[in-house]
Amino acid sequence: MLDIGQDTVRFAYQDYADGARKKEMDLPGTEFIRRFCFHILPPHFRKMRRAPLPPLRSIPVNRG
């Protein structure tokens, strides 16, 4: 977060659709909290990281 005003929140983010350029955005406080809450997991849930899949060439193919 860069600045918290009376009604707005200014924060920095990376826009990966635009070549990972750093940008700034102003949002009303209620909208910022709404978007932030999407990142909070419910109780007893765990964040899982996925391992990358091996290349298809490395998987043996049964051709018989």
Rank of each mutant, 00 (worst) to 15 (best):
H44C: 07
R46E: 15
T8R: 14
I4A: 09
E31I: 07
D18P: 00
R50T: 14
Q6T: 14
G64W: 06
N62R: 08
P54G: 14
I4Y: 03
D18S: 10
L27K: 05
E24A: 11
M48R: 05
K47V: 09
F36C: 04
R21I: 10
R57S: 15
F36K: 03
V61P: 03
L27M: 13
K47R: 08
Y16R: 03
H44L: 08
I59Q: 12
I33W: 01
R34E: 11
I33Y: 03
F38W: 05
A12Y: 00
R46W: 04
R34I: 03
A17M: 00
D7Q: 07
I33L: 03
K47P: 00
V61W: 09
R10M: 15
Q6H: 10
P43H: 08
I59Y: 11
D15E: 05
I59R: 07
F45D: 07
F38T: 11
H39K: 03
T30A: 05
Q6P: 06
F32W: 04
R50W: 05
K22L: 01
C37F: 04
R50G: 13
F11W: 08
I40F: 01
P42I: 05
L53G: 11
A20K: 08
P54R: 11
R21P: 00
I40C: 01
R57E: 15
D7F: 02
K22I: 08
I4N: 13
K47F: 10
P28D: 11
P52H: 14
D15W: 00
H44G: 09
A20W: 00
G19E: 00
M25L: 07
Q6K: 13
G5C: 15
E24W: 02
D7A: 07
L56T: 13
R63S: 12
H39N: 10
G64Q: 10
H44Y: 13
K23V: 06
N62P: 03
V9Y: 11
P43V: 08
M48F: 01
I4E: 15
D26Q: 08
F36M: 06
D3H: 09
V9I: 15
T8D: 15
R49Q: 13
H39V: 06
I4K: 15
K47Y: 10
F38A: 10
G29H: 05
F32M: 12
G64Y: 10
R34H: 05
N62C: 09
P42V: 03
P60E: 12
